[in-house]
Amino acid sequence: MQPFTYERAATPAAAVAAFAAHPGAHYIAGGTNLLDLMKLQIETPAHLVDVSRLPLLEVEDTADGGLRIGALVHNTALASHPAIRARYPVLAEAILAGASGQLRNKATTGGNVMQRTRCNYFYDLARPCNKRQPGAGCAAIGGHTRIHAILGASEHCIATHPSDMAVALQALHAVLHVQGADGERDIPLDALYRLPGDTPHLEYTLAAGELITGVTLPPAPAGRMRYRKVRDRASYAFALVSVAAVLDVQDGRVASVRIALGGVAHKPWRAHAAEAALLGQPATEATFLAAADAELAPARGWGGNDFKIPLARRVIARTLHELAGEA
């Protein structure tokens, strides 16, 4: 690790001020991703603002029947929360599908959505990476691409976002609360993420020093919900493909549907095309496969990850089929 100065912030406002006062500052909460990257000197903050003790630990009902989650609620606590397990089980399932018990005890809600990619070439300092060093090139393209993106990638970066939790949050249309030097604002989670384009080093739309203080889930959508993850090991591995889906079937037709995909793109991917193809259609296997095809029409493989396209197709259809069968 490179040396850094350190301070613990007492309030979100103090944290934002501390960040602004120190060039090269970085917030740290659970630290499970950041410290790993600091050890490899992929991240080299000059100053750490410890936000882990800020009073952002509440999970509270909102007036409209949703749920507001403090940014520092640990993954284990969130997955165990009765309101999440009863009303938003897809979120509990997604959290529990990620990482290990030890990591989930430390990782926070805010940090989880801000994870950086686990692309092997991003981690390998001996290889070029446009994310680490803009303009250097992408060693993943032409390399081992088993874990890489099939949607929304570019010739500059084919990395994927690693979070499971954020995939479920996307399906639940979560809204982030952030605080910065210019005050507080709310942004839909989907608007947090950028596609790589020709600036893959820019991953998030937060302004420098903006701090995530919480996440709000709108009232639980109608229907049944599920997170399904396919990976190379039974446990403790990142997704090759994952699906968070919420499906409401009325009189044999799709009344409402939400689908988000993990392991396939630079961001947790909202499957708008699949959703549009399903709405009002009969809840049948043929419709589910056609919806998956609509979503995957622009998909592109890079050799080692070509299998992800048919895999995603089948995982989407299978998940919807299961949800429809239980309705």
Binding site: Y6, G31, T32, L35, D36, L48, Q102, L103, N105
Partner: peptide, 8 residues
């Protein structure tokens, strides 16, 4: 339980 290696 936590990983002591990923904690300052």
């Amino acid at each position: 339980r936590v990983n002591a290696c990923l904690a300052l």
